[in-house]
Design a protein around this nucleic acid. Structure first.
Lengths: 156, 156
DNA sequence: TATTGTTATACTCTATAACTATA
DNA sequence: TATAGTTATAGAGTATAACAATA
């Protein structure tokens, strides 16, 4: 994602059948939130994927990067860059796994913890602002419905 | 989007706070549907964006490509390739707009109509399969909630 | 001056294949 | 044989800037 204007839909123009498709609305809603998210974090070198990695490593200290990738739906090959980035910035620590010498064991550094807490607070404020229209119950409903769609990705 | 496996989440691993963020779940649910969508349409040279353009042109014959792009949140510069693609394949017709000689007036060809109908039927069957867990009421709720998030993209 | 369509360019995300070192 | 991490590569998607023709 990147920098520009959050793509104001042209209200006058009808979408046709597109308007009935959940896939379309998921794509657009996700893009609206992601664009605004990226703009909010501009200048911090933090992105959705990096934050996701930090969150999982923080919750599962010692996890290896392959497992993080599978959890996030990111392939091994595409984990190398982000993990290198986080390690070079001193946000995560990579140690040789004692039980499996092929793997790296990941953990947040104190600096990583601090940045994570800071960014998390900003993300929560951001979601609060973007989702002000939705009640607490509606947000819970939304997460439940999305979770049931995500689960369909497992079935292969 | 593309070809590979729909990224099975690793059930054992906790997401941490990520699990509470709507932005994360939107991203994942959207990716699950989009990946499966792309696999279903493999070999047809049809993609989400192309189908979106066809849907809007079909519903608004004579519309110019800038307006289509604004409706879909796609910038002018990034509309050129897809529109060329559809025109070269004989799915849409580009005529000089009579009221504005800078613009092209777009319309579906009979071939475009036929392909659209065919692909639409497959997309509906695909959504039916992917969303079998969700009741009709839940799907309507989901579209409503997503629509309210999309509307936040307009406010800039 | 502003807008339509265009070209050129660049960066991110993601997919594939092949390698190495371990298991 | 299979797996963890890596490298290299390619294709989408998308952002920016600048140009010609027209408004």
């Amino acid at each position: 994602m990147a920098t520009q204007a959050p793509a104001a839909p042209e209200i006058a123009t009808s979408l046709g059948v597109l308007d009935e498709l959940i896939g379309y609305h998921l794509r657009r809603a996700s893009a609206v939130l992601a664009t605004d998210f990226a703009r909010m974090l501009e200048g911090t070198d933090m992105r959705q994927v990096l934050f996701g990695i930090l969150s999982i490593v923080r919750e599962n200290p010692g996890i290896n990067q392959g497992a993080v990738g599978r959890t996030l739906g990111i392939q091994r090959a595409n984990m190398v860059g982000p993990v290198n980035d986080l390690a070079e910035r001193g946000l995560i620590e990579r140690k040789a796994d004692k039980e499996d010498r092929r793997a790296f064991s990941l953990a947040l550094t104190p600096k990583g913890e601090a940045l994570f807490d800071d960014v998390l607070a900003r993300i929560r404020a951001h979601e609060e602002a973007m989702l002000a229209d939705l009640s607490t119950a509606e947000r819970a409903t939304l997460i439940d419905l999305l979770g049931r769609i995500e689960a369909r990705g497992s079935s292969v």
